[in-house]
Structures are given as C-alpha cells and as structure tokens.
C-alpha cells in the first residue's frame, strides 16, 4: 500500500486560533478514512487544506506527491469535493450544475453529458433533472453535491459531512454508493458526526479535538479500547439515588453524567441482577460503540 495523502506536522492558524495543531497522518490509496471530532475540532480545516481552499500555516501536506501549496491545480484536478455547506449554483438547474461544473475541469461537452446522465442515475436524481436548485429538498441537494463531486472521475473524494440532514433512505443510498466507489479504488475522506456511519464505513479513522489527534485506528479496534464490551445505562438517576447506588457499583468502571450512569463491563448479568431490586426507572443494556469512546475522549460537555 502507498500513501496518497500525507500530512507532516500540519498546522493551520486563523489569527490567534490554532484550528489544526501539528498533526501527522498518511492516508492509503483506496482507503476510506474518517475524521471525527466535536464542533470546531478542525475537521473541515484539514479538508480545506487538502483541497487548497485555505493555506497551510506550517508543516507539509502532499497529495499524490504534490505539495498543496505549490501545485494546487494538479491536486484539485484529481479531487472531488463535497463541502460541508452546499454551494450548488442556484442560477442553474440540476443538470446544468453538472455540465457547468465539468467545464471548470476542462472536460469535453460530450464526456460531460454522458457523465452527468450517469451520475444523475447513480444518485436517483433523474426526475429532478430540469429542476432549479432552489426546488430541491435538502437531501436532494446533498446528493447533487455528491454527484457534482464525482463529475471529474476523481481519484480522491473528500466528503465533509455528506449525510448530515439526510433521511435514513438517502443515508443508506449514500453509504451504498460510497462502498461502490471504494470498490472502484477511489480513496475517500469522510467527516461525520454519526458514529454508526463511521463504524460501518471507515477502514480507519482519527478522532480530533482542539486541532489534535486524540485517537486513531480501525473503528472496531478503537471500540475494543473501551473498558468493556457492553454498556449498562441507568437513566433518570437523581443525585440522591446516585449516592445510594454508589456502593453497588463501586467495583465497576462507570461514569455519571447528566441524569445517566454508564457502566462499562464485559459481563452485564451480575450487575443487572444486583440492581434488580432497586426499581430503577430506566435500565438499558447495549454494546459499547464508537460514540462511547468519542464521548469518553472528548468529554460530554458541549463545545462552545
């Protein structure tokens, strides 16, 4: 395997804000690589540096051997970009958006028409062919932005929250399409706030907080780092109840936040048995997941 995107001590500052703080990564060709992190962590900034939208403050960033600061045209030629905020051309129709965009890549009209048809089909947008962008629903716009990102047959696809705001059907459609694209050998970079999505899709991922990587690896491996395979959630627990429960769970790994106690364990049965007579309002037993790790590493409080 060869790395197609490499960042070395990559740093981005906006004035006093350090959005990306000396991170190192190597994304393999054909890999589906995820960037996770709370709001303001620096995910979008990393993506923007890759597609040469913001400059690199220090460190090095190479795409297929090309330095993004010196060869932006060469880099952007092999990328497909789906930005976090939709920026479809509102003055054009669905179809025209694709054709016009293909011209920016210098694609011939004939190829563009064929490609646009194919992509509209691929993303089930055929019926909305002649619709103005304004008339599309949020999910359709997102799919059109995805189609647009593929118009130049990119080697690398950059997806900044591609499924935010999509209904489950559309989300599954997008996942299926991404797996199809991956099979074709396209390298995919993905940011998402959906941990299930990251778990299903990503070969590897990094978790970012305050511009720094705080965890990296394949999702299942990361989940195994948690102190237990299972989680017991005791919900709607008031302060006093918590005090009275404390002796029962003192030997377990747990966390109390808001109104919920999270107990991590490999063997939930004895714990549940011991809690049975407490008559707790809501007890949930489930598998530990990426979200648990995410919250554990980044803390449960909201980001400003």
């Amino acid at each position: 395997m060869t790395a197609i995107i490499t960042g070395k001590n990559l740093t981005k500052r906006y004035g006093d804000i350090t959005a990306v703080d000396s991170v190192n990564f190597a994304i393999e060709q054909g890999e589906l690589f995820g960037f996770l992190g709370p709001n303001g962590a620096g995910k979008t900034t990393i993506m923007k540096m890759i597609y040469c939208f913001v400059s690199v403050t220090s460190g090095q960033l190479r795409v297929k051997g090309m330095d993004v600061m010196n060869k932006p045209r060469g880099v952007k030629k092999i990328l497909g970009v789906v930005p976090q905020e939709d920026n479809l051309d509102p003055d054009l129709t669905t179809y025209e958006n694709l054709i016009t965009y293909s011209r920016y890549y210098g694609i011939s009209k004939k190829d563009a028409v064929a490609r646009a048809r194919e992509l509209l089909e691929f993303f089930s947008l055929n019926v909305k062919n002649q619709s103005a962008v304004m008339e599309l629903s949020g999910g359709m716009k997102r799919r059109l932005t995805l189609a647009r990102g593929l118009i130049n047959d990119p080697e690398i696809l950059i997806l900044d929250e591609p499924t935010t705001g999509l209904d489950p059907q559309a989300r599954h459609l997008v996942w299926q399409k991404l797996r199809e694209l991956k099979r074709k050998g396209i390298t995919i970079l993905l940011t998402t706030h959906y941990m299930d999505e990251a778990t299903y899709l990503c070969d590897r991922l990094v978790m970012i907080d305050n511009g720094k990587f705080i965890a990296e690896g394949p999702p299942m491996e990361l989940i195994r780092k948690l102190p237990g395979r299972m989680v017991i959630e005791l919900q709607e627990i008031e302060g006093q109840v918590y005090e009275s429960l404390k002796p029962l769970i003192e030997n377990e790994v747990y966390e109390y936040f808001g109104d919920t106690i999270y107990i991590f364990t490999n063997d939930p049965k004895p714990i549940l048995d011991s809690l049975a007579e407490m008559n707790l309002p809501r007890v949930i037993e489930r598998y530990a997941n990426l979200e648990d790790l995410f919250l554990k590493l980044t803390g449960r409080s909201l980001r400003e």
């Binding site: 040469c52 932006p72 952007k76 990328l79 920026n87 479809l88 003055d91 920016y104 890549y105 130049n152």
Partner: peptide, 14 residues
C-alpha cells in the same frame, strides 16, 4: 451569498 466562487475554486480553477 451563493458561494459560487467557493465551488469554482474547489476545481482546478484558481
């Protein structure tokens, strides 16, 4: 408002 330029400069256009 439309971010049309943003979309354009994500392509090989400068």
């Amino acid at each position: 408002y439309q971010k049309t330029w943003d979309a354009m400069i994500a392509t090989p256009l400068s």
